[in-house]
Amino acid sequence: MTARSDIDVRDAAPLDLDSAGDVAAAARAGLLPVGAGRELAIRVPSGLVPRRLIASRSAVQCAPRSCTVHAPASATWAEAEAAALGEGLTLGGIVDACADATIGGTLGRRAWLPALWPCHTARGAVLALEAVTRTGRRYVASGAPRTSSGPDLRAVFFGAEGRAGAILSVSLQAAPADDELLWLRIDRSKAATVQRTLNRHGAIAAARGEGGDLVVRLRTGSRAADVAASALVAASARETAAPAPLRSRPRVVVTTPWDRLSDAFAAASDPSLLRILAAGPTHVALAIEPTTAAGRRGATAWAQSATTDPLARWCAAGIPVDAPETSPLAEAP
């Protein structure tokens, strides 16, 4: 596929996603939907026209009883989080990594990602999804918490970089906003203990990183949390402040199984650029935060060389990645 790159998509003409007819027509004409334009070096396949999605009428809405937040794709995560907090809900750790990005843009950029603990993956938080395909047809996935009605067709749009059409809106799983949190910092060498402890407490805990260490977040106020905290303290965890926000939105994110975490840091030429972004039952997501274009290229090369483990692969990227296309399914829509 021929591609034009280094196009500042913030110059793209706006397209109102509340005007379904316009979106459908644009899709048929070769729409490449873009969000906030935070990706300054986006790959634009030839024949596609970048259009910046906006919402003139729809707004973020919350359903506190069902812990869900409904948002137009053009809303930023920060806007959705603000509305959620107003109803006593939170979207959790996603917002830290993507606050100024649009929800649709994040979903379009991020593809394969193993499960992370609740509310840490954008894709994992999506319930209902409304989209327009590149042939101008509307697709709506119901917002049931789980279904078995065939394959999860929402995945067609995740990570498709706009090539499958345009995401119009989504509903997202939220959680009650935590008011009692305990942060514990623990050396990365104790990763196995952290993984085991958190696997026993997945719904009330999460893990991030700070300077290469793991930082565990526990929702306190329960006996189970006390047991988890005791286990971590026994492994030399110490209380700490909440991790600082990321210096910038991560340009490269890779995942690695817990048992390869040390290998990933060992392989990095500059481990200080690596940060544990989130963790899940089997994998850890690592953000790489290079500050220059050369650094980004270097990070890409490192990530590709460091992910020889078949279960440690790309999950998301700000840098266009020609991921290995392993099946015709990947290009079909």
């Binding site: 593809a111 394969w112 990602l113 193993p114 894709r123 078995s148 009605s149 065939g150 394959p151 999860d152 067709l153 929402r154 995945a155 067609v156 995740f158 990570g159 498709a160 078949p310 279960l311 692969r313 790309w314 990645v321 991921a323 290995p324 296309e325 392993t326 099946s327 399914l329 990947a330």
Partner: peptide
């Protein structure tokens, strides 16, 4: 498992 689309989600179900 790998880059690109989430093929697992499309194969499951």
């Amino acid at each position: 498992f790998g880059g690109g689309h989430d093929l697992t989600a499309l194969l499951v179900g």
